[in-house]
Simulated scan of single mutants.
Amino acid sequence: MIRQMQRIPIGCPIGFSGRYIVLPGNTMFMIAQIFRVTLASLIAANPHIENPNLIFPGDVLCVPALMRIPCCVILTPRGTVPFGTGGVAFVNFGPRGGQVINVMATLPPPSFFGNYDSYIATAFLRDIGGFGNQLFPTLEDPPTWSTRIEFPTAISLTADVQVVVEPFSAITGITGPIILQNNLRACDV
């Protein structure tokens, strides 16, 4: 049996997010879907694959991206907040496909900002709207609040996404002032 030689790129173009080793059963189309890039951009980033319809297990592909992933962004405090208030947004690929933003923050009790009992983190995407989730505290004092915002595989995060953390009242459904905020520009390729 003749075995196909592994094809490895000499170098990857500017704006690639990483390398991917082809697994049995993979197709270029499938890999483009996994990383939410266009098939054309995946093919263009891999000129060492002469026929994109023929890829083999072990081939190494350059994966282009709209953003560098994984990436971490510091969430900047807004307004008057206690000393030590701060957080980060960690952008990565999700465990079920798609992209995720993990938010972790050191925050005072939500009641510090008024009649609130929790926090929510929301990522605002231009022309789409916001995706959010409640943050949950750890047992330390003060706690670390955290959550994961998962995005459908059809969505690709971009540098203009705004991530905010706000206090929230589960009783009234009202959100308070923005406590932490930043965009994902630091993740730009």
Rank of each mutant, 00 (worst) to 15 (best):
L23V: 11
L23Q: 15
L23I: 10
P24Q: 05
G25I: 04
T27W: 01
M28K: 06
M28R: 03
M28H: 05
F29Q: 13
M30P: 01
I31N: 07
I31D: 08
A32K: 00
Q33K: 09
I34S: 09
V37N: 09
V37E: 10
T38L: 02
S41N: 11
S41K: 10
L42H: 05
A44C: 00
A44Y: 00
N46F: 01
N46I: 05
P47K: 11
H48P: 09
I49C: 06
I49W: 00
E50N: 15
E50S: 14
E50P: 06
P52L: 09
I55M: 03
F56T: 14
L61R: 02
C62T: 05
V63G: 09
P64W: 00
L66W: 11
M67V: 11
R68W: 04
R68S: 15
R68A: 15
I69S: 02
I69K: 06
P70T: 08
C71R: 05
V73G: 00
V73L: 00
L75H: 09
L75F: 11
R78M: 13
G79Q: 07
G79A: 06
G79W: 04
T80D: 14
V81K: 07
G84S: 08
G84R: 06
T85S: 04
T85V: 08
F90V: 14
G94E: 03
P95T: 13
R96Y: 10
R96A: 13
G98N: 07
G98M: 00
Q99W: 03
I101A: 02
N102H: 12
V103P: 06
V103N: 08
M104C: 09
M104W: 09
M104D: 13
M104K: 14
M104H: 13
A105R: 01
T106R: 12
L107W: 02
P108G: 07
P109K: 10
P109M: 04
P109H: 06
P109A: 12
F112R: 11
F112I: 07
F113H: 00
F113V: 01
N115R: 12
S118Y: 04
Y119P: 05
Y119A: 09
I120D: 04
A121L: 01
A121P: 02
A121T: 03
F124D: 12
F124Y: 15
D127M: 06
D127P: 00
D127Q: 11
D127L: 03
I128V: 14
G129H: 00
G130K: 07
G132M: 10
